[in-house]
Design a protein around this nucleic acid. Sequence first.
DNA 1: CACACTTAAGTTGTGCCCAATTTAATTGTG
DNA 2: CACAATTAAATTGGGCACAACTTAAGTGTG
Lengths: 162, 162
Amino acid sequence: MGITDGRVEQSMRIDAQLCFALHAAARAFDGLYRVVLREVGLTYPQYLVMLALWEHGELSVKNLGAKLRLDSGTLSPLLKRLEAAGLLERRRAVDDERSVLVWPTAAGMALEPRIIEMKARLAESVDLDAAQGDRLRARLVQLTESLDAASARLAQREIPPK
Amino acid sequence: MGITDGRVEQSMRIDAQLCFALHAAARAFDGLYRVVLREVGLTYPQYLVMLALWEHGELSVKNLGAKLRLDSGTLSPLLKRLEAAGLLERRRAVDDERSVLVWPTAAGMALEPRIIEMKARLAESVDLDAAQGDRLRARLVQLTESLDAASARLAQREIPPK
DNA sequence: CACACTTAAGTTGTGCCCAATTTAATTGTG
DNA sequence: CACAATTAAATTGGGCACAACTTAAGTGTG
């Protein structure tokens, strides 16, 4: 294959890819959530938005994006769909007309207990020790941070002249 | 918030979500790869396809899908784009006209050393111990399996009548 | 005050992902 | 052999993710 270092070549194998394993696991989780979320008519990202709103009551699009790591290009149409579904409302903030506030409607709030019940069923179905899962989660958060830092360094190096 | 069990409510918090951490890490990895893959004009899924082709030389769309966990709905247009870019070729298999075989062109093969060099730069930029990374990968593979098993169980329960 | 700069959402375009459906080829069974 | 069932790709449609750009609102400095 035109390379001499066995270790480098080894690192090219798909099943050795941490990145690939990460994607596969994320998609597997997605698939599982999709099955149960279909009952309430939500997609996984929509579920994350509702989760954030149940926790915080009201959020600006910007804050929501920061929490979910999504930009307005993704959120704007997604929020529009949730608004059309009657689960949340949107209004420009009075003190700063640039920002848009989002909060759950009564129907949106009514969804929470159903989702909690659903998650209980899910947790039961997946064989995953809670403590172990939390350790894994912590390692993923740490990984995300170091990846973001690396991205920032690379981006900076690519556009170095101010 | 209308629920009495503190632990259940705790499990609703976004930052407690393994699933969310997984997504965020996958997207962070994606972002990092995007920066460097842009130089060679590949997206991350396209890169995975090329990786599989460098390793196996020739694959059917079905086999490719099994390895990458993608279906024809995703692969068909993606492969079409890679073909248009001159990186691979496609042809119906002679022994079974249903299946389509895919293999890298010379230009596609020529990309491999560039990618290897690129990955070396990446590895250097990300602060990640190799052994630790591999342990994490193994746990993710295991998680994926148990999630898939749970999905299969749920799907079966939902459409029980034969 | 004026004007450049910055910030927040939204829009557009490209690509990915999946579900559902379609088409064509192959296989299995009476 | 005939014909139902299965299989492999491709297509269609909805939604997510991001880059690049636009618009409008706020900020800061001369």
